[in-house]
Every structure is written in structure tokens, then in C-alpha cells.
Write a protein that binds this DNA or RNA. Structure first.
Length: 973
RNA sequence: GCCCGGAUGGCGGAAUUGGUAGACGCGUCAGACUCAAAAUCUGGUAUCAGCAAUGAUGUGCAGGUUCGAUUCCUGUUCCGGGCACCA
């Protein structure tokens, strides 16, 4: 009987399915455990081997927890809204709903082959109206709420209105506009429109204005990755910054709680660091600088170093700062306008990445608040409008960028830190004693900030301020394929729809062209836009991808509930996600948004936890190993280029040419032969002109190692290279290689289906894990898969012999056998719990190798071993398990999935002695077996009488002997 | 540019808390079985020197701390991820 994985895997997948073995109930006596994969976007390209890496890890963990007696929730669904489907629709005319459904079907088929334990009865899709009804509903709650800073909690906006009527906003400063200050009398006298505008500045979901990548040529807003070097990727039209009305989430109000929550979750330190850097909390001061000769105009700057106030040599404003046009003097107007025009084409990222120093003097001067010195005011791209006040005070002796700017534009530098500043580079120390600093002279920098703040307060020109780098999250997209906003505009006031009218369905549209005035495609559907009572119109933007994915983990708990997004009783049972697995690329986007939504829903008392994910595991990215063929670009005198044969040259010759810009001799001979054969006449080599060599991505599936299968290559892409000729290296065509992102366009994708077909799902699962640490990125290489496949066959042969049949017997296990088993149990348990799946697989291999050596076919050993293996290789484990049950004449059906995980018994692992490494001066010289009981004295006696040690001591005395029990011995001479 | 990772044999990787560097697998070499092949099994395999015993070198690079460093510290190079409308 041999290991027929195709039959076995099909049988058990079908059986598990029929018996609904993965269906999970929302109540159980067992403790709940929630294992979740990050929501996949069902891309048209289908699964490649990189996708299932995390899914396999989570599946192993979910199955492991189940064996440990937990009721495990392990669902899967689709983040189905998104730009690619819309793009596909524009290019191919297939509606997003249709292509998405197709992609999901394909995705599901691929997932099913790998044998995951998902409870598919809980599947959700964000594009399903039954799902987005609740996304819209939560949005409405955000819209109807404000953040009460007094108790740090979201509350209904009605409460705020009641406060305004009684006391104005004196105790509730406006987060959207700090200049909004009113008394109750004023509030009560405002009309509806003004009231609604004021409330908009408090709402957690609000409408405001923001900059976007505007492409006039396409009439649409573009995503950053649709823009290449200031041009649209599609069509190559210029892209510029444009201000448009946008919806936002006031995530900045949650900044402190998002920081605090990081202390309570089990994420990697680097992940927490990335999030807190993104939030970017800094303490500093906001300081007003009066503009010289312009009455009543002052520039507010934000600085984290108020202690350096006397080192200010110039101010820099963001070019888009509103004051720029007011303060620019006529003689600098032209220059400033030109600089601002240049800035329109620059993205924030380009501006920050720019090494070249650019800027422009406005002609204006500011007055130093203490010394009354006149300070020139510049504009430069390194100051961003969106951060702080959009203006900085530049202190070149203490800040690198300021220093370079001053140097570049020859601005004199004031030194306030004496010897700490060498005049050649800035020194951002906080420990210097201040000089040239008026009332701060002789004060330590760390103590100066407080004094400055006090003086600023006295003069009423500045105050301490906490600043966040994080900005409010843009929440609208001028796109079609997303959730419509349940908002109706009436007289330019946004009104929420009634909750009982949800879902607001996304209407079908005939053509996905952009709407007028930078609006999304929905704006073209006048019937839908205007189909509201009165003279109102609908919001034409849709929500972004992260809307649906910010709360999906809650819907899985109660996916079919028509009355609530999730019953609170049920979310109480499951609690937040115990283990969340996904890539680091979501570090600051999805993870922060879902953390915010969770806190918001918690504030509204709709769930009773305020962090969505207890523990996070980041899986690495599996990269592709691309292969290249090298196409020769050449001409022959008197021959039309189109009549020339297409020639590819093997790597060696390509390298030679690219390096030395000449053709290798043996290569030239082959080239001559190819050309002569092709034209059936002799062409003088002198008439062949080689211009260049272009590497072309070729499908890695046609390449064995580096050797190209030339026949397959000729058939590739509908015989595009059907007539190709090859210049070979030792009879072979050798390809070039490079590690890149796995992607269809690079022809380096490996489809899991092919591997499952060839080796089975169990082998595939084990191999993905065996590749290396799950957190680490690595290029895919199929080469080693044979090894894990062999392991499974070897395991099989512990139970069955091809000719003799079953080998199983049951008897009392020997101590050797028990030691092997319990070593494996211990190692696999530890490794699984610390997500070191690769070493767990190797522990299985060691166990099977050793049991094979012992010719152990004892059920007493093998049964616990396959239960231990079941999370990793469920199909073969179930098959062997059923054979064991048959042997034991247990005839009722019970799945291995509901077995109990074997527990390690340390008594089988006890050792009495250890083979100690003995080093002399830290260099290993020998090993000596010594009892684990031995003490320092005993050990010294033993090792000093050892021949090798004596030889190295060579009669000299030793200085000391370091003995670490159960570790090592080191003799210092 | 800024933030976060990573770098160990021919290859993927192991070494969990500073304690025998290279577990396990691939590849490769030699052998067994076979008419032959596949499959399977056994043994070798970091590098250099040596018949061997053994010795020297060795975890991107340059330093440092330590009896002892892949592990900790400082600096540096290269590669990957993110940087707010890809998801």
C-alpha cells in the first residue's frame, strides 16, 4: 500500500465537508479562541505561493488550539471592493461586480485545495449589501458622534448640542477649527446652516477639504501608485495637487488612546514602533512671529525645541501656506510664484525625499519675539503644509536640514551652543549650555524650554503644544467600486440618511467614466444622485478600501444578523481576535484604522473590548525568483530589421557583452552560423552589427534551475517567439536571475495548484512552513519540496509496507521510543507556540528518521505522533488515524480533528550526564562527558586530568575555570 | 529623505536567556539494491593545510564589551517593506 495523496486528500476534504466538521457554534462549554487571517483582496491574478504562507500558519495554529480543547473561530472572507476591479472594468468593460465574483470563485477553489479549516458558513464579502449595510451604519454613528476630550470618549453629537445651548463651546474647543469660539447666545442665534457647519468640525466622520493627485488628462483623482514621476501611469498625463472636498475620519482624536493601547497588545516591538512613529506624538511649542511692516499678521510656527529660540536665523513656510501670498514683497513675487508652480507637481513623498536644497526668499521679515531681531522668511518644500502649523523656525546650529539650507543660501548662522557647534555640521544635542541666548544664557537646554514657554505665555505669543504627525484619515474616494455614503446634501449641508433606509445600494452604471468637477463615476448617474426627497442630492464619492476591513473581524462572529452588525452577547463570547496573521505592509494603514473603529464601537458600548487584535503575527513576503532571456538587438546590412531572425543569447555571452561591450568569440561563431542558416547563404560577420542586449522576463515555469526549456519557450505566449534562435552555452540556454516581488507581470509566479497536484496539499503545507521563519521574507524556490514529500512517504512507511501491507502493532513502548516521541512532543509544542513552524517540521523529520531506524511500528508511539502532526498535515494524519482505529477495531467515526493533543512527560527525557564542551581561552578543544550532578570542584578535578587539557595547559597554571552547569566549561590560562 | 526589518556553507535555514556555529532539508559525491531505471537505503559534504590525528580560518564589513559574541554596543554597506487614494 503506497501513499496515494491525491485519493487521500480528496476523500478527507469531501468527508470533512459533508460532516460540516469546521462549522463553529457561537456558544460552547469550551473556551473560545479566535484565529484570523488578514482579509484578502481577491485579485484577478489568483493565488500564488506567497498568499497561503500566512493562511497555512494560522490554519496550523487554529487546528492546534482545537486539539488543545478550544472552540476555535477561524473564518475567511473577502475585502472585495477596490481599485483593481474598477481598473479592470475600465480596460475590459467587465463590471466590477462580475469580475469580483469570478475572482472570488477562483480564489475559493484554490484555497480549498490546500485543506484549510475555515468555517465557510461565515464567509463575508465587503461588497455584499448585507455587509456594507453595516459599514454604512457604522459610518453614520461616526458622523453622529464627536470626541469628548473631557472623558476621552466618543459620544452622541446631541449631547454636544445641548452643551452649546447652555454654555457655548468654552469647554469644548473645536477640533476642526480652533478659531471657532461662541457663547450660548451666539449658538442659539445661529441658523441651521451655521450650526451644521460648526458641528461638522466636531464630527468623527466629517467633510472637509484636502489635497489629491489630480490628473486633468484623465479627469480623475489618482492613487499614489498610479502616479509615476509626476505623470499618470495610465496615459502619461501630468498630475498635480488639487484641493477637493473630501470626507475624513477624525482619527487624530484617538491618537493618545491608539498609543496607549499599544502597551496592552502583543504585537512585535517593531510593529508598535512603526505605529507610534506614524502617530508621531511630539511635545513642543507653538510660537507667533510678527511679520515686520505688515500690521497684524503673524506666522505661527511649531517647534519641538523652544529652548533654541535664540538660535533662529530664518523662518521657513510651506509654499502653500496661506500667508505666503500676503507677505511676499513685490520684488520677490515672480520667484515665489515660480516656486509655488513647481511645488504643484511635487508629492509629499518627493518633497521629503529630495536631497537637492530648494527654496525661495519671500522678501518678508519676521520679528524675533524676544530680541526683536529681523528674521528672513523663506519658503521651501521641506516644510509640509499638513504638519504642525506649516511653518518652522529654523535653527541651523542645531538642526541638520536647517543647517544645510542656511549653508546653501548663505544665511548667517547664530551659534547658541558654543563649542558644541563646530560650524561644519549641526548638533542636535539637548545637553549643551546655552549662549547668545539673552535670558537663557548659561541655562542647560533641557531646563530652558520651560522658561521659554513661561515667557511666551506672559507675552501671550505662544504656548506649549502637543502635536501629532498623524493626520485625519481621508475617507472618500472619487471612485465607483466602494460603499456609497449614506449622506444627502441639501443646500450644501450634509444630512445622514435614516438608518432604516440602509443599505444604500451601489447602483449599476453603464460606463465607469469620471464624473464632472473631479467627482467620481456615480456623479454621472443623475437619476440615482437626485433620487431623494426634496431638492437634495446624494454624495457621489464612495468609501475607501479600509472602510469594510476596519470592522470585518466582528462580522465573522455573527455574519447573518439582520438587526445588528454583531450581537453584543456573541462578541462577548468570542472577544477580540486572539491571533491575527498578516503582512507588515498593513502596519500603519489597516491596523490603525481597525484599532480606531474598535475603540469607537467600544465607546458607544456596542462591544466590550477596545482593541481588535490581542496578538499579531507578521508573515514575511515570499518573493519571486525571476528568470531572464537576453534578446539580441542587431542589424545586418541590406536586410530589413523585420526580416531578421529573433536571437536569444545565453547568459554567459550576454554578461560578456554587457561587461566588455564586445561579443565573445565562440558566441560570434554561433551567431554567424545561425544567421547563415537562416538566410541560407554566407553573410560576412563584418556586416552584422550588434547594438545591444535586452533582458526579457521569461516564465519561470519554463526554466529548470537556470536552464531554459527552449521548446516550451517557443510555444509561449501563443508562439510569440516561435521562430526564436538561440546562442547556447555548452548546448544549454542559461537564463539570468533576479529576486523581485512575485507578480504576474514578471512571470515569476508559482501557482500553488500545480504543486498541490504534484505533491499533495500536506506536502505543500509542510514545505511552505519548512522554507524558513514565517516572519521572514524570502524568495520562493520549489527545489526543496521533494524533501518534505519524502518525509511524508517515510512516515507512511512506518505504518505500511508497499508489498507486505500493514506493519502496525501495539505493545508497550521502549524507553528509546518514548524518548523520541516525547522529544518531538516537547519541541513541536514549543515551536508551534512561538510560531517557529519550520523547526517544528524538522522536529517531525527527526522523530520519523529515528523511529525508522528503530523499525518502530508501534501504535502506542505512532498514534500520538500523528495527532501531533495533524495541524500541519491534516489529510495524511486523518488517513493514518483511521487506519489505527480500524486496527483497534473502533468502528464509529471520530475525526482526528477532535482528538486531544498529546502532552509531554518529562520523565522520558531525563538525562544523567552531559557531553560538555571544554574550551581553553574560549576556543573549543575537546568534549568530556560529566555527570549533571557534578559541582565546580568535581568538574575541575575531572578536566584537569584530561589528556587534551593537559596538553594545552602545557604545565602552566590556569587562572580560572568557568563552569556553567548543563552548558559548557572554559579554562582561562 | 524618514520609519521598520534582514544579511550564517553551493542553496533554504538551525543555534529559544551571551555558552559545542551549520540541526533539518535540498543539492552534490561515493556505495548498496536492480538486467536497467525509478523508488528506497547507507555513508561523506563550511573553507584551507594534512594520509590521519589535528591545526588554522569562518555568521555582510570595521571596531568595541566579555573568560566566551551569529546573539550585546558603536559605526558602515547592501537588500526588502511602509510613507497616508494599491490592498
Amino acid at each position: 500500500m503506497e501513499y496515494n495523496f491525491i485519493e487521500i486528500e480528496k476523500k478527507w476534504q469531501d468527508t470533512w465537508n459533508e460532516k460540516h466538521i469546521y462549522q463553529v457554534k457561537n456558544e460552547d462549554t469550551r473556551p473560545a479562541y479566535y484565529v484570523l487571517d488578514m482579509f484578502p483582496y481577491p485579485s484577478g491574478a489568483g493565488l500564488h505561493v506567497g498568499h497561503p504562507l500566512g493562511y497555512i500558519a494560522s490554519d496550523i495554529f487554529a487546528r492546534y488550539k482545537r486539539l488543545q480543547g478550544f472552540n476555535v473561530l477561524h473564518p475567511m472572507g473577502y475585502d472585495a471592493f477596490g481599485l483593481p476591479a474598477e481598473q479592470y472594468a475600465i480596460e475590459h468593460g467587465i463590471p466590477p461586480a462580475v469580475s469580483t465574483a469570478q475572482n472570488i470563485k477562483n480564489f475559493r477553489k484554490q484555497l480549498d485545495r490546500i485543506g484549510f479549516s475555515y468555517d465557510w458558513s461565515r464567509e463575508i464579502k465587503t461588497s455584499d449589501p448585507q455587509y456594507y449595510k453595516w459599514t454604512q451604519w457604522i459610518f453614520l454613528q461616526l458622523f453622529k458622534s464627536f470626541y469628548n476630550r473631557q472623558n476621552a470618549k466618543a459620544e452622541p453629537i446631541e449631547k454636544l448640542v445641548a452643551v452649546f445651548e447652555k454654555e457655548g463651546n468654552i469647554h469644548f474647543p473645536c477640533p476642526g477649527n480652533e478659531h471657532t469660539i461662541f457663547t450660548p447666545e451666539m449658538w442659539n442665534s445661529y441658523d441651521e446652516k451655521i450650526k451644521m457647519e460648526i458641528l461638522m468640525n466636531y464630527r468623527l466622520a466629517y467633510c472637509g477639504y484636502g489635497e489629491v493627485n489630480w490628473c486633468e488628462g484623465l479627469g480623475t483623482v489618482l492613487a499614489n501608485d498610479e502616479v509615476m514621476n509626476g505623470l499618470s501611469e495610465r496615459g502619461g498625463f501630468p498630475v498635480e495637487r488639487k484641493t477637493l472636498r473630501q470626507w475624513y475620519l477624525r482619527i487624530t482624536e484617538y491618537a493618545d488612546r491608539l498609543l496607549e493601547g499599544l502597551l496592552r497588545v502583543d504585537f512585535s516591538d517593531s510593529m508598535k514602533e512603526m505605529q507610534s512613529n506614524w502617530i508621531g506624538k511630539s511635545t513642543g511649542a507653538e510660537i507667533s512671529f510678527q511679520i515686520h511692516n505688515v500690521s497684524n499678521e503673524s506666522v505661527k510656527v511649531y517647534t519641538t525645541r523652544p529652548d533654541t529660540i535664540f538660535g533662529v536665523d530664518f523662518l521657513v513656510l510651506a509654499p502653500e501656506h496661506i500667508l505666503v501670498s500676503q507677505i511676499t514683497t513685490p520684488d520677490h513675487q515672480k520667484e515665489v510664484d515660480e516656486y509655488k508652480a513647481y511645488m504643484k507637481s511635487r508629492s509629499d513623498r518627493e518633497r521629503q525625499a529630495e536631497k537637492k536644497i530648494t527654496g525661495c526668499f519671500t522678501g518678508a521679515f519676521a520679528v524675533h519675539p524676544f530680541s526683536d531681531k529681523l528674521i528672513p522668511v523663506w519658503i521651501s518644500e521641506y516644510v509640509l503644509a499638513g504638519y504642525g502649523t506649516g511653518a518652522i523656525m529654523a535653527v541651523p546650529c542645531g538642526d541638520e536640514r536647517d543647517f544645510k539650507f542656511a549653508q546653501h543660501f548663505n544665511i548667517p548662522i547664530t551659534n547658541i551652543i558654543g563649542r558644541e557647534f563646530n560650524g561644519e555640521m549641526a548638533n542636535d544635542t539637548k545637553d549643551a549650555i546655552l549662549e547668545n541666548s539673552d535670558f537663557l544664557n548659561g541655562v542647560k537646554m533641557r531646563d530652558a524650554a520651560e522658561m521659554v514657554l513661561q515667557k511666551l505665555a506672559e507675552k501671550n505669543i505662544g504656548k506649549a503644544k502637543i502635536q501629532y504627525k498623524m493626520r485625519d484619515a481621508a475617507f472618500s474616494r472619487q471612485r465607483y467600486w466602494g460603499e456609497p455614503f449614506p449622506i444627502i446634501w441639501q443646500d450644501d449641508i450634509a444630512y445622514p440618511m435614516n438608518e432604516n433606509e440602509l443599505p444604500l445600494l451601489l447602483p449599476p452604471v453603464d460606463e465607469l467614466k469620471p464624473g464632472p468637477h473631479g467627482q467620481g463615476p456615480l456623479a454621472n448617474n443623475r437619476e440615482w444622485i437626485e433620487n431623494v426627497p426634496g431638492n437634495g442630492i446624494r454624495e457621489s464619492s464612495t468609501m475607501p478600501g479600509y472602510a469594510g476591513s476596519s470592522w470585518y473581524f466582528l462580522r465573522y462572529m455573527d455574519p447573518h444578523n439582520n438587526d445588528r452588525f454583531c450581537d453584543k452577547k456573541i462578541s462577548n463570547y468570542w472577544g477580540n481576535v486572539d491571533l491575527y496573521i498578516g503582512g507588515t505592509e498593513h502596519a500603519v494603514g489597516h491596523l490603525l484604522y481597525s484599532r480606531m473603529w474598535t475603540k469607537f464601537l467600544f465607546d458607544l458600548d456596542l462591544i466590550n473590548f477596545d482593541e481588535p487584535f490581542k496578538r499579531l503575527l507578521n508573515q514575511g513576503m515570499i518573493q519571486g525568483s525571476s528568470r531572464f532571456v537576453y534578446k539580441l538587438i542587431y542589424t545586418i546590412e541590406n536586410v530589413q530589421p523585420s526580416n531578421l531572425p529573433v536571437i536569444f543569447i545565453s547568459k554567459k555571452y550576454a554578461d560578456h557583452f554587457l561587461e566588455k561591450n564586445e561579443f565573445d568569440e565562440t558566441g560570434a561563431l554561433q551567431l554567424g552560423k545561425i544567421v547563415n542558416d537562416y538566410f541560407k547563404k554566407t553573410i560576412e560577420p563584418i556586416n552584422i552589427f550588434i547594438q545591444n542586449i535586452t533582458p526579457i522576463h521569461t516564465d519561470v515555469n519554463m526554466v529548470n534551475g537556470f536552464e531554459l526549456n527552449m521548446d516550451e519557450f517557443k510555444k509561449w505566449r501563443n508562439h510569440e517567439y516561435g521562430d526564436a534562435c538561440f546562442i547556447l552555452d555548452d548546448g544549454k540556454y542559461i537564463c539570468g536571475a533576479e529576486v523581485e516581488k512575485m507578480s504576474k507581470s514578471k512571470f515569476n509566479t508559482i501557482n500553488p495548484d500545480d504543486l498541490v497536484l504534484k505533491y499533495g496539499a500536506d506536502t505543500f503545507r509542510l514545505y511552505e512552513m519548512f522554507l524558513g521563519p514565517v516572519e521572514q521574507s524570502k524568495p520562493w524556490d520549489t527545489k526543496g519540496i521533494e524533501g518534505v514529500h519524502r518525509f511524508l512517504k517515510k512516515l507512511w512507511r512506518l505504518f505500511f509496507d508497499e508489498s507486505k501491507g500493514s506493519l502496525m502493532y501495539e505493545s508497550e513502548a521502549s524507553s528509546d521510543e518514548l524518548k523520541i516521541l516525547h522529544t518531538a512532543i516537547k519541541k513541536v509544542k514549543e515551536d508551534t507556540e512561538r510560531f517557529s513552524f519550520n523547526t517544528a517540521v524538522s522536529a517531525f523529520m527527526i522523530a520519523v528518521n529515528e523511529l525508522t531506524t528503530l523499525k518502530c511500528h508501534n501504535i502506542a508511539i505512532l498514534k500520538p505522533l500523528i495527532i501531533l502532526l495533524a495541524p500541519y498535515a491534516p489529510h495524511i494524519a486523518e488517513e493514518l488515524y483511521q487506519h489505527v482505529r480500524l486496527y483497534k477495531q473502533e468502528n464509529n467515526f471520530e475525526s482526528i480533528l477532535d482528538e486531544t493533543l498529546p502532552v509531554v512527560n518529562e520523565k522520558y527525557l531525563m538525562e544523567t550526564s552531559k557531553n560538555y564542551p571544554v574550551s581553553i581561552n574560549g576556543k573549543l578543544r575537546t568534549t568530556i562527558s560529566i555527570s549533571l550532578e557534578a559541582g565546580q570542584q568535581g568538574v575541575e578535578t575531572i578536566i584537569l586530568s584530561n589528556e587534551v587539557v593537559k596538553k594545552w595547559l602545557d604545565g602552566k597554571p590556569h587562572k580560572k575555570i568557568i563552569y556553567v552547569k548543563n552548558k559548557m566549561i572554559n579554562i582561562v590560562i
